[in-house]
Amino acid sequence: TGYYDVLGVKPDASDNELKKAYRKMALKFHPDKNPDGAEQFKQISQAYEVLSDEKKRQIYDQ
């Protein structure tokens, strides 16, 4: 599964769309709200870390 799929956004998503999707998913799977969501929360955080950084995103998109 790709990072875009993890966040539920298209590859041409804007920074604002990425942030909005990340916040929505992070709230849904945060371990405090969803004890079984810890692994998914890590994936969401990693996806956002890469896609929100312009240089990392360019490398990922290659």
Rank of each mutant, 00 (worst) to 15 (best):
R23N: 14
P35T: 04
I59Q: 13
R23I: 15
A47F: 03
I44L: 07
H30I: 02
P11S: 09
T1L: 12
K20N: 13
Q58C: 12
G37E: 06
G2K: 12
A38Q: 11
D12W: 14
I59E: 14
K28G: 05
A26R: 09
G37I: 05
N34A: 05
A38T: 08
E17C: 08
R57S: 04
T1R: 14
P35D: 04
Y22F: 14
V9S: 02
A47S: 04
Q62K: 13
K42M: 12
Y4Q: 00
D32I: 08
Y3I: 04
K33R: 13
I44W: 01
L7I: 02
K55F: 09
G8T: 02
M25N: 05
Y48I: 03
K33I: 14
E17T: 02
K33C: 15
E49F: 12
E54A: 15
E39T: 12
D53C: 09
Y3C: 12
K10R: 13
Y60P: 01
Y48P: 01
Q43F: 12
D53L: 04
Y3V: 02
Q58Y: 13
G8Y: 02
Q40Y: 13
E17L: 03
K28E: 08
Q40K: 14
E49W: 12
G37L: 11
Q43M: 14
T1A: 10
L7K: 02
Q58E: 11
L7N: 01
S52V: 09
A38F: 09
D32W: 10
Q62S: 09
D5H: 11
I59C: 11
R57Q: 07
R23D: 15
I44Y: 01
R23A: 15
E39L: 09
K20A: 15
D5L: 11
K55L: 09
G37W: 13
V9F: 01
Y22P: 00
Q46E: 14
F29P: 00
K20D: 15
S45W: 12
S14T: 14
Q62A: 13
K10F: 07
Q46H: 12
K33V: 14
L18S: 02
E54W: 14
D53Y: 04
K56H: 06
L51S: 00
I44V: 10
T1F: 15
K56N: 07
K24P: 03
Y22K: 02
H30Y: 02
F41I: 04
A47T: 00
K56L: 12
I44H: 05
L18P: 00
V9I: 09
V50M: 05
D53M: 02
S52W: 04
L7C: 06
H30D: 11
I44S: 00
Q40T: 08
A13Y: 01
K55W: 05
E39V: 10
K10N: 11
Q43T: 09
M25R: 02
V50P: 03
D61A: 05
D12L: 04
P35K: 08
I59D: 08
T1C: 15
K55Q: 11
V50R: 03
D12T: 12
K19I: 09
D61W: 03
G37V: 08
K56F: 06
G2I: 11
K33S: 11
D12G: 12
Q58W: 10
F29S: 01
A21Q: 05
K33G: 06
M25V: 05
D32M: 10
L7V: 02
Q40I: 14
A26I: 14
G8M: 04
K56E: 05
G8H: 06
E54V: 15
A38Y: 11
D32A: 11
D12R: 00
P31Y: 08
Q62Y: 06
Q62H: 09
E49H: 12
V50C: 08
Q43A: 13
Y3Q: 00
D5V: 09
R57M: 06
K55V: 13
A38S: 09
A26P: 00
Y22W: 07
E54D: 11
Y22T: 00
P31E: 01
D36K: 10
F29A: 02
Q62P: 03
D5P: 04
K20T: 12
A47N: 00
R23E: 15
G2N: 15
Y3T: 02
Y60S: 01
P11Q: 08
S14Q: 02
K24D: 15
E39W: 09
K24Q: 11
Q43E: 13
R23F: 14
A21N: 01
D12P: 02
K19F: 12
A13P: 00
A26Y: 14
V9N: 00
Y48R: 02
S14R: 05
